Computed example of a mutant assay.
Amino acid sequence: MRNVDVSLIRDKIAQLCIEANHYLDGDLKTCLSKKLEEETWPVAKDVLTSIEKNIAIAEEGVFPLCQDTGMACVFLEIGQDVHLTGGSLREAVDEGVRRGYGDGFLRKSIVADPLRRVNTGDNTPAYINTEIVDGDRIKIIVAPKGFGSENMSRIKMLPPSAGEEGVKDFVVETCEMAGANPCPPIVVGVGIGGTFDKAALMAKKALLIPVGRENSDEYYGRMEQELLKRINGLGIGPQGFGGRTTALSVKIISAPTHIAGLPVAVNINCHVSRHMEAVL
């Protein structure tokens, strides 16, 4: 059994909140550069160039990648041989977000109630997802989620007879309906199977997969590439100005489901697909 004081989690989350709002993973930057080389529409090339400049400015550590610094989505993989000490995990996570968004001068975007709309003033509470895994380590992923893209996400309980084509049509339809709203080029997370809530969680977790990583399942790897081709064929383009680059990546996570169902969820992220991780 390994004891871990929750203050360590608090401090790491504060750090990751700031870093995730200023730095993009190298795989995403590489993908953007490749798409810029491939793009033929002058307006689209100009937009992609501006995006790369924005990323470089944000890396100087003063200005965040986007004015919407997002809802703090915190994913915790906690080893079953870990004993948390020093207080409440929930309180530690929220305090980490509170400090990160305060010290980083990041916009506070959370309202305490969805209808009465009073801002909490510190970007808490965070969205927290915990998973118990083997081992004695804690993996932390902080993924600030802007709602220009979150609002474009959808879920549908398809009949099993819809099959692969029904799933693909729903994903493409969702991206077409989103249009320019999620600030394309987008990253598309897809969850297939499980239950209503499981599909949505898988779609969100799919956004955490590096864009350059191939799916270990060849079947879904082929589906990801076909979907990427179809979405880019919509011609929406960077920021909706047309072109070949509507999406940077499509990632799929699947899970077993009931014989009577085929849940599918689509969680969209803008080109600022932010997430940082650490292991304690």
Rank of each mutant, 00 (worst) to 15 (best):
M1L: 03
R2H: 08
V6I: 15
R10M: 14
K12L: 12
C17T: 06
I18H: 06
Y23W: 09
D25C: 09
G26V: 02
K29N: 06
C31V: 08
L32H: 13
K34W: 08
K34R: 14
K35R: 14
D46V: 08
D46M: 13
K53W: 04
K53F: 05
I55T: 09
A56L: 11
I57G: 00
E59N: 07
P64T: 12
Q67D: 00
D68H: 04
D68P: 01
D68K: 05
T69A: 01
M71G: 06
A72E: 08
V74F: 11
Q80I: 03
D81Y: 01
V82F: 13
L84T: 06
T85Q: 15
V93L: 12
Y101V: 07
D103A: 14
F105K: 13
S109H: 07
I110Y: 08
V111R: 10
A112D: 15
R117I: 15
T120I: 03
P125T: 02
N129V: 11
D134A: 14
I138G: 07
I140G: 00
A143Y: 00
P144R: 10
F147K: 12
G148Y: 10
S149K: 00
A162T: 02
A162W: 03
E165I: 09
E165F: 11
F170M: 08
E173G: 05
T174K: 05
T174G: 01
P182H: 01
P184V: 01
P184Y: 00
G189V: 09
G191A: 02
F196L: 10
D197C: 03
L201P: 01
K204P: 04
N215C: 12
E218T: 07
E226R: 14
E226L: 08
L228M: 08
N232S: 11
G235E: 09
G235I: 06
F241N: 05
S249Q: 06
P256V: 01
C270F: 01
V279G: 10
V279D: 06
L280M: 10
